[in-house]
Amino acid sequence: MNVSVQVSFDAAASDGPGASLVRWFRAARTGLYSGLVEAEARSGGGVVSEAQIVPDIDDLVRRFPRIGKTWPRFEEELATFPWGAQLVFLTEGEEPEVLGRASSYHVLRDGSIWRASALTSVDSPDDAASCTALVDFLHAALDGSNPLYGHIEWDDFDELTNLDTVLRRKRRTSLREGRQFLRGYAWVTVCPAELVTRLGGAAALEDLGAFHRVLPLRAGGVLLQASATMDGYTEQVMERLFEALAPVLPPGEPRPDPAHPYMRFVPRDAATVR
């Protein structure tokens, strides 16, 4: 089953944009896709990888085949904060299948907001070990940064959050107000330092008892894991999460979007909970 991990960054990233990209792709290689890296290294492992860099939106793609041999050069390019980057693992053969993909690109041409994502899969939504590994990857990829927002979801909603969709918020508005309002909530939610402070701090969030795990980031943000497994993210758990985060959620009456019938959300205006 496919799982999507998405994170938004802005110029408030405390460790610098290039460092945030290096950490993201390094954590993907050594954590999330470590099994694929090992399979490619074995003779007959059936896996092949390629990394790509696009220095600027109008530039040609620079390719780095078989990352086991080209990784140092790829990281050097990441450190320059390119417009786009990708690391992909494929099955070998005439019709390759994507086994995993990590990517990043500038949301705004001036580089003031950028996005990182990863696509992977889990064997079962109720497997605690694989679910924990997903969260541990995200924590390793972000520790040292103060992201604007992030989440782990079952599906990739084309960069939309659940609240962007049901509140009909424009994506750029949501991004630009990301340190004023939390952009959404999910099984795992990344909350920036500014909003953590308004919620009373990481210790206060942990004391609420509304989360399975509260994982602080060194730069002040937190990862909030709602339940031990993705399967455990029930309507009751989501309601508890919503109420805990309501003080920093954008106001408005949510309305279902027919284009996204499986989007999960609590049908209440967060402003009425505060």
Rank of each mutant, 00 (worst) to 15 (best):
G144D: 01
S104Q: 05
S124I: 10
D257L: 10
Q6R: 12
Q180T: 15
K170P: 05
A219C: 10
T80G: 06
D143F: 12
M230L: 11
F9V: 02
G16I: 04
R264V: 07
E92S: 06
V107K: 14
A41T: 08
G44D: 14
E206Q: 13
D127E: 03
F157T: 12
T30K: 15
D110T: 06
S8C: 09
E153N: 10
S103M: 10
E92I: 09
V122K: 00
I67T: 13
V135N: 12
L245K: 07
S112G: 13
L175Y: 15
T161H: 04
L205M: 14
D257F: 09
D10M: 02
V7F: 03
V5D: 08
E40T: 05
G16E: 10
E97Q: 15
E92A: 08
A202D: 05
P254S: 05
A79R: 15
E40H: 05
R213A: 13
R73P: 02
V5G: 05
G178N: 00
D231I: 03
S14H: 12
R115N: 11
V237A: 15
A129R: 13
G44F: 13
M238V: 03
W187C: 00
F64G: 00
V48K: 14
L182V: 02
R101N: 12
S117E: 15
A28N: 05
S124R: 10
G100V: 05
T272W: 04
H151K: 12
A28H: 03
Y185I: 02
I67D: 01
Q225F: 02
L142I: 08
G16Q: 12
V5C: 12
W24F: 07
V190M: 04
A228N: 04
H151S: 14
M230Q: 15
L249S: 03
